[in-house]
Each structure stands twice: as structure tokens, then as C-alpha cells.
Computed example of a mutant assay.
Amino acid sequence: MDYGVWEPARLGQIQLPDGRLLGWAEWGPADGTPVLLCPGAATSRWLAFGGGVIDAAGVRLVSVDRPGLGASDPAPGRTLTDWAIDIRHLVQERALGAPSAVGFSQGAPFALALAANGSVNAVAVVSGSDELAHPRFAHSLNPQVRGMVDAVAADSDAAEASFAGFGSAGTLWDLIITTSPEADRAVYTDPAFQHAFRRAMNEAFSQGPAGYARDTVLAMGRWPFDLTDVAVPVDLWYGQQDTSPVHSPDLGESLARMIPTSTRHLLPAAGGSLLWTHAEAVLRTLLAHDR
């Protein structure tokens, strides 16, 4: 089955004002409607979604490597707000106008940071991580995830070093496969998809694990923006079969209550891989906000 993980149409880097390079990849027509992709944990600009749907919908999909991953230079100590500033420069350099954003899995807080900072006009959170350090999840986290959240709260530097020691493409691939339901494993182990996914993970760790570790600290800690202040449309997409312990524990239910502009889409037969199994619905709904 074609899950839309096509080769990029264009690849490149921009130079930021502080001299760092930020890597990007694009799919779809160069004059299409711009959509920024914030990829999941430990992946890179190489893993797309949508394939032919993107071309048919006239979407210019732009995936960006976060600092320290893939083709983007490190930025030690970076924050979610720093990410929004980097993206503002990317938008200007690549003439993206007023883009929307998609945040998959651990990419969710990065996409929501763009919304909170006024950098995008709409967001789709797909199988997203939630603000796991928020008190509303005090008693509902997987014990291992609770340990990670508590470690970040107690000493974020020590937690970051611990995540770096754990992080590798192989280790995280094994974790994804063992914590996914059969519906998701069927997607992830499809030969074409697995090749694309593993390549994206290997590329993400090409500079070592520090970029992944910093991302994880930012995702597992308190987010530096108030979700109730998000003013652009936000679609929350979750599959009821999703068993990932690091996605939203209540599949976006309380997140939808916190974001006043949000709409929750709960798909009974889908799992965490719905970015690839339901790409057309995600994109069409996102594009409708532009109209």
C-alpha cells in the first residue's frame, strides 16, 4: 500500500541570523498552499505524508529539521519559543506567506508553539503528544512516562543527559514497534514505509542524540505558552486504537477543552499512524480554514 512517503521534491537549508543552518524538505507544487510539518520524535525532514494527495490538493508541504537533528545545526538550551522564532525566519526566506502547520506526535508542542506565537494561521495536531507535565495528567500517565516527566521537573539538565544516553535510531524504532497496536505495526513494517521511516530516523541521529534529547525535555516539561490563548483554528486528530504512552493520555479530550478554537476528531478504527492512513482528511480539513 502507498502510504504517501514519497521522495522530497526539493531539499535545502537556510541560514539563520545567528549563522546556524536550518534544514528543510518540500513536496508538492512550489507555488502551492504552504503547510509546515513538525515531525515526530527522532525523525527528520525526510519523512513526509500525503504523497499524491498533496499534489492534488495544491499543497506545498515543508518539513523542517529541528535544531540538532538531520541537516539543522544544534542550538543548545533552545526553547519552544526559540523554535517559533526560527520558523519566522524560514517563512520569510522561503516566501511561505501565511502557512498552516501539522504537528505529528512529539511535533505537536512545536506546532502549537507556532500557533501561540502567531506564526501560522491554523494547526492540525495528529496523534499528538500532550502537555504531559500539566496537573490534569497527575494520575493518568504510564509509569515510565511519569518518571520522565518527573525527571525533567526535578533537574532538566540531568534528564536531558539521560535522554541522550538512551536515544538512538534503533532503540526508538524498537520502542515504537513494541508499543504500537497491530493496526499501526502493519503501517510501520510495510517495506516502503519502513525504509522511509528508518532513513528519517538515521538522518535525525546523524549528529548524535543531543537534538532528540533536547526535543524530549521540551515536550516533557511545562510548555511556555497558555493553550487558552491560542487563537487560530486547531484540529485535534486521534485514533481510538492508539496505544502510544507518549501521545495524549485521553486522546485529546482535555486538550480540546483547553484550546477554545479546537475541534477534536476521534477516529474509532484508526491508531497512531493516522497521519499516513487518513492524510487526505487531515489536509482537506486544514485547508478549509484558509478558505
Rank of each mutant, 00 (worst) to 15 (best):
A279E: 12
V217P: 11
A48S: 14
R88C: 10
T189D: 14
A111W: 10
G51R: 08
W223K: 12
W83I: 08
T277K: 06
V232D: 02
A269M: 03
A159R: 02
P34D: 09
L61N: 03
W223N: 00
S119A: 15
G4N: 09
A95M: 00
D174Q: 15
A210P: 03
V246D: 08
L266S: 14
L251Q: 14
A279D: 13
D242K: 08
V125N: 08
G208M: 11
L274T: 00
I176C: 09
P233L: 01
T178V: 13
A279F: 02
G103F: 03
M220D: 01
P135E: 03
Q194N: 04
S100T: 07
R284N: 03
L47N: 12
R284Q: 12
Q241A: 14
W24F: 15
A164E: 02
G70Q: 03
R198Y: 04
W46L: 10
L287H: 02
L80V: 09
Q194L: 04
H247W: 07
G58D: 09
G51A: 11
L236R: 10
V5S: 08
L61G: 00
R146M: 01
W276Y: 15
V59C: 06
R146T: 05
M220G: 00
G147F: 00
H195K: 13
L47A: 14
Y238H: 13
S127L: 09
P34Y: 00
Q92M: 10
R146Q: 11
L80T: 06
D235W: 07
T43Y: 02
L61K: 05
A231N: 05
G40Y: 04
S180K: 07
P260D: 01
L274R: 00
P245K: 10
G103M: 10
P99R: 07
A113S: 15
G58L: 06
H139G: 10
T33M: 04
R146P: 04
S206R: 14
V126F: 05
V91W: 01
E203H: 12
L218S: 12
L267K: 01
G165R: 03
R222A: 12
G51P: 05
F166V: 11
H89A: 13
P99C: 06
P143A: 10
Q194W: 04
V91T: 09
S168E: 09
E253I: 14
H247I: 11
E203V: 08
D150A: 10
G221S: 13
W6N: 15
W24H: 09
Q194E: 11
R185N: 13
R94P: 02
L175N: 12
G118P: 15
R45A: 06
L266C: 00
A196Y: 07
D290L: 11
R257V: 05
G68Y: 02
G12M: 06
N117P: 05
D242Q: 04
L90R: 05
R60F: 00
F197K: 03
A25I: 12
T243Y: 11
H195S: 13
L175C: 01
E93L: 08
V102G: 07
L114H: 09
D150Y: 02
P268L: 04
R264A: 12
L90W: 03
L21N: 12
F49V: 12
T228G: 15
V62L: 02
E131A: 07
Q194T: 03
A133I: 00
N142E: 11
L175P: 00
F197D: 08
W276H: 15
V152T: 04
P74Y: 05
V187R: 06
